[in-house]
Design a binder for these strands. Structure first.
Length: 560
RNA sequence: GCGCCUGUAGCUCAGGUGGAUAGAGCAACGGACUUCUAAUCCGUAGGUCGCAGGUUCGAAUCCUGCCAGGCGCGCCA
């Protein structure tokens, strides 16, 4: 994996270390060298600016340092064709074509595993995402969070972490009563009562439908019953049906959770008070004005937070503390929370809570996903939860499909707002990035199909004959292999930064190189050896597209 | 008022632990289908990286201030 890059990085570290062992940390592993792919082909396959970084410590010019590094360089694998010192002190590497061929062979020998790595070393990591309140259907913003969390979980699993996906159900608190009352009113309304809908209740159309379902099940039985007597029934009916709908929607979106965690279970288990006691034992809890407070300012929060109100009822935050304590008690090394960016004011207190519970601040990673602006043909689509006119995830899925929705959600950095245009997502044309990638995959599959029809027997090279790829000599071919070799590195970057958007960008770049190559070169020709070599390269491109799309949860069709 | 995020080509956005001439898609303009899928490709044009200072041999990237947009700032969830 990332074979050439790794070899080169190791060689460089070995060459840099003798210059100043003390500064470099004493071992080749501790030497940080950054290899980049230059934007200009004349600057080689890889370049490094490591000589610049050492100028201060070594008190010599970058070019002198670069020269010394080159003196120390031992190319035991014979992967370097040429190396040069360029400009003010860059070191440019030109790789042997045979080394690229070897990298390609390695990829083809284990296609399914290509990209997989052991960054996580089996550490347990939990990704909690969506966690929308069961008071209404998922909207498009939840879709972005769902795609981000799901794909991040896929990536982390591919990188050697043991991943659990979890959904936290906020099935406690005032909002549940509000939901139950809202359904009660809609039910009364359905039975012909004149209802003045009170402020602050859920007025979405989905509650009318729910009232219908309720009526089908219970008839007119509760027409005369006072609200207080039947509220739990209405609340339970509404939340369970809405949660079922959420599960269906997520299923349709290709997202599956390992665990659904109920907030109520914390209340039943007295976990909230136990958590507060645990924090009190550390001296982080005090009483004031008849309430109990968490001293979150001890960990950088801007003010302390109430955990038990003066009326004796715990806050939502207290439950969340208990929830996170529970997560860590279940043995996760790292916990990732994916939240809508409108909750950012909550981050500091949560991180403070984690520390008060005896964990490191870094054990909880909070990812804020910015909001989605829904557009249709460039014009904003109105979304208002209050009036119940929001666009649901389901509607978007029905209109544009899972593939386009997932891909588009992942083409932006999480902390950047996203314009989601339904017309673009729907269009089966070149302004839709998902089709660009899918088309390349279908095209590749079609090449192999035609090869079969023509009776050209492609055999995936098994590595026994390294010379089988000698015919791949074009710069475009070597550039494609170089990018294929980068794929594991892309996953590493995603896993480290917890940002999945590098994958769509990588795919676009890879596919763009392939489309261009396809338009200028013929893969199937009379030349048998050349055809075999080019098919092997095409095979590898297809494999990487397939693997990457699998991580994104987007289909890679064989025909379009 | 305070805090977080954002500001890069006409539009939508990558790049952000400082490094060579700042990238891509869309839109615009001009080309390429008797050939393995033209849902593709090739070319042209398009930039004071919000503004102003600072640090540095070197800043889109780091620091400070300002401007603009988004979102928060409950003993709600």
């Amino acid at each position: 994996m990332t074979w050439i890059r790794h070899r080169l990085t190791e060689m460089l570290a070995d060459a840099v270390l003798p210059l100043s062992p003390a500064v470099m940390g004493g071992s080749p592993e501790a030497v940080a060298v950054d290899l980049e792919i230059p934007s200009l082909a004349q600057h080689g396959d890889f370049a490094t600016n490591v000589a610049f970084a050492l100028t201060r410590q070594l008190r010599r010019s970058p070019r002198e340092i670069a020269a010394q590094i080159l003196n120390n360089l031992t190319d035991s694998n014979q992967i370097i064709h040429r190396v040069e010192i360029a400009g003010p002190g860059f070191i440019n590497f030109f790789i042997q074509p045979t080394a690229w061929h070897e990298a390609l062979l390695r990829l083809l020998q284990n296609p399914v595993a290509y990209g997989r790595q052991d960054l996580g070393k089996g550490r347990r990591i939990q990704v909690e995402f969506v966690s929308a309140n069961p008071t209404g259907p998922l909207h498009i913003g939840h879709g972005r969070g769902a795609a981000t969390g799901d794909v991040l979980a896929n990536i982390l699993a591919a990188c050697g972490f043991q991943v659990t996906r979890e959904y936290y159900i906020n099935d406690a608190g005032n909002q549940m009563d509000t939901l139950g009352r809202s359904l009660y009113y809609r039910y009364q309304e359905l039975l012909g009562e004149t209802i003045v809908f009170p402020e602050g209740h859920y007025q979405g159309e989905y509650l009318r439908e729910l009232a219908q379902e309720f009526h089908e099940q219970y008839g007119n039985r509760y027409r005369q019953t006072p609200l207080e007597e039947v509220l739990p029934l209405f609340t339970g009916f509404a939340s369970s049906h809405i949660l079922d709908g959420i599960k269906d929607d997520l299923n349709a979106f290709g997202v599956q959770f390992d665990h659904w965690f109920s907030e109520q279970s914390l209340h039943h288990a007295d976990a909230i008070h136990q958590t507060i006691e645990a924090m009190a034992a550390g001296g982080f809890v005090y009483d004031r004005e008849a309430a109990r407070w968490f001293r979150s300012t001890a960990f950088g929060d801007e003010k302390d937070r109430v955990v038990i109100r003066s009326n004796g009822v715990s806050t939502y935050f207290a439950a969340d503390l208990a929830y996170h304590r529970d997560k860590f008690q279940r043995g996760f090394d790292t916990v990732i929370d994916i939240w809508g960016a409108d909750h950012h004011g909550y981050v500091d207190r949560m991180l403070a809570g984690v520390q008060a519970l005896g964990r490191n601040r870094d054990d909880l990673r909070i990812i804020l996903v910015q909001l989605v602006n829904l557009l249709r043909g460039g014009k904003p689509v109105a979304m208002s939860t209050r009036a119940g006119e929001f666009v649901t995830l389901r509607e978007v899925l029905d209109e544009v499909g899972k593939d386009a929705a997932r891909f588009l959600f992942l083409t932006r950095r999480s902390d950047s707002q996203l314009d989601f245009d339904l017309e673009v997502a729907k269009s089966q044309s070149n302004d839709n990035p998902v089709f660009y990638v899918q088309y390349a995959h279908a095209r590749l599959c079609s090449i192999f199909e035609v090869a079969r029809e023509r009776g050209v027997p492609y055999l995936r090279p098994d590595g026994s004959d390294p010379s089988s790829l000698d015919r791949l000599t074009l710069p475009e071919e070597l550039a494609i292999i170089r990018l294929l070799d980068e794929y594991p590195q892309v996953l590493t970057k995603c896993a480290t930064t917890l940002e999945p958007h590098f994958i769509p960008y990588y795919l676009h770049e890879l596919v763009s190189l392939f489309h261009s190559y396809y338009n200028h070169n013929r893969i199937l020709s009379e030349d048998v050896a050349l055809t075999q070599a080019r098919l092997a390269m095409a095979d590898a491109v297809r494999i990487v597209i397939h693997n990457a799309m699998e991580l994104l949860g987007v289909s890679a069709p064989e025909k379009m």
